[in-house]
Amino acid sequence: MGIRYYAYAFDSENTEQVLMDPLGFVSRDPLADAWGMEPGATIGYPTFKQSTPERDMLYLDKAWRQLQWLTGPSAEGRDARPAFRMFEGEVTMHHDGWESWIRALTPAEMVAIAEDLETISEDTMRVQGTTTSCALSDSDAEYAIPYLRRARTFVRALADEGRGMVYLIG
């Protein structure tokens, strides 16, 4: 099925608890949340409509990698953008599959991330993706652009509401 990206919002009063146990704020079955399936079901029919409210969950499918390349440091020496904080991370592969990457971002961090995401235009993604070391193909950029829009909307709402997020790549 592949490695995917899921983020869950949390209210500011939970920040300390989230920082101590970020996994405690992630659904037991994030793919079911994203695809509109019954959690834990081994057989079922996805609705492909996110069952967790969009205010509370961001699903980036496999586009996190393109967004990570776009915002991360480059071989040319470019520093990572502030938005990289929400895409940074790699799973740890082992003989049974992988161990997910998880990170909590505080409400204070969301402001800079939201401001940075707003400066990344779709044209920038298309052009920069083909001129940096990540060399996004046109199809990669086109795939990731709708997810960039979702990320921008989700993070802006978190910043405006004073909420943070926990994200999982896995």
Rank of each mutant, 00 (worst) to 15 (best):
Ala41Trp: 10
Thr92Tyr: 01
Val111Trp: 02
Glu142Tyr: 06
Ala151Gly: 01
His94Phe: 06
Asp123Lys: 12
Ala135Gly: 10
Tyr147Leu: 01
Trp98Ile: 11
Arg55His: 07
Met57Ala: 02
Ser139Glu: 14
Ala159Pro: 01
Gly164Ala: 07
Thr52Leu: 02
Pro82Thr: 00
Ile3Asp: 04
Glu109Cys: 02
Asn14Gln: 15
Ala41Pro: 13
Lys62Thr: 14
Asn14Val: 04
Val91Asn: 12
Thr42Trp: 15
Ser74Leu: 02
Leu168Pro: 08
Thr132Cys: 09
Asp33Trp: 00
Ser100Ile: 07
Leu148Ser: 05
Met57Leu: 06
Ala80Asp: 08
Ser139Lys: 15
Phe87Leu: 06
Arg152Val: 00
Ala159Lys: 01
Gly44Pro: 09
Leu19Tyr: 13
Ala32Arg: 03
Glu13Gly: 07
Arg55Phe: 01
Val127Cys: 04
Gly72Tyr: 03
Met37Phe: 07
Ser137Trp: 04
Ala83Ser: 10
Ser133Trp: 10
Gln17Asn: 15
Pro22His: 00
Thr42Glu: 15
Pro73Gly: 14
Tyr59Pro: 14
Met93Ala: 13
Leu70Lys: 12
Pro146Phe: 01
Arg65Phe: 06
Glu99Ser: 11
Met20Gln: 15
Arg4Asn: 10
Thr15Ile: 02
Glu142Pro: 04
Ser12Asp: 13
Arg163Leu: 00
Asp29Ser: 08
Pro46Lys: 07
Tyr8Trp: 08
Leu31Ile: 15
Leu60Trp: 00
Tyr59Ile: 13
Ser27Thr: 11
Ser133Gln: 11
Leu117His: 06
Met125Asp: 08
Thr47Lys: 03
Gly162Phe: 10
Thr130Lys: 15
Leu158Tyr: 09
Ala135Cys: 12
Glu99Lys: 12
Glu38Ser: 15
Gln17Val: 07
Ile3His: 05
Phe48Pro: 15
Leu67Ala: 01
His95Ala: 15
Glu88Asn: 12
Asp56Leu: 02
Ile3Tyr: 04
Phe87Lys: 08
Ala7Thr: 04
Gly97Pro: 05
Arg103Gly: 04
Gly24Ala: 08
Ala7Val: 00
Gly164Gln: 10
Asp11His: 14
Trp69Met: 10
Pro82Gln: 06
Ser27Leu: 02
Pro73Arg: 15
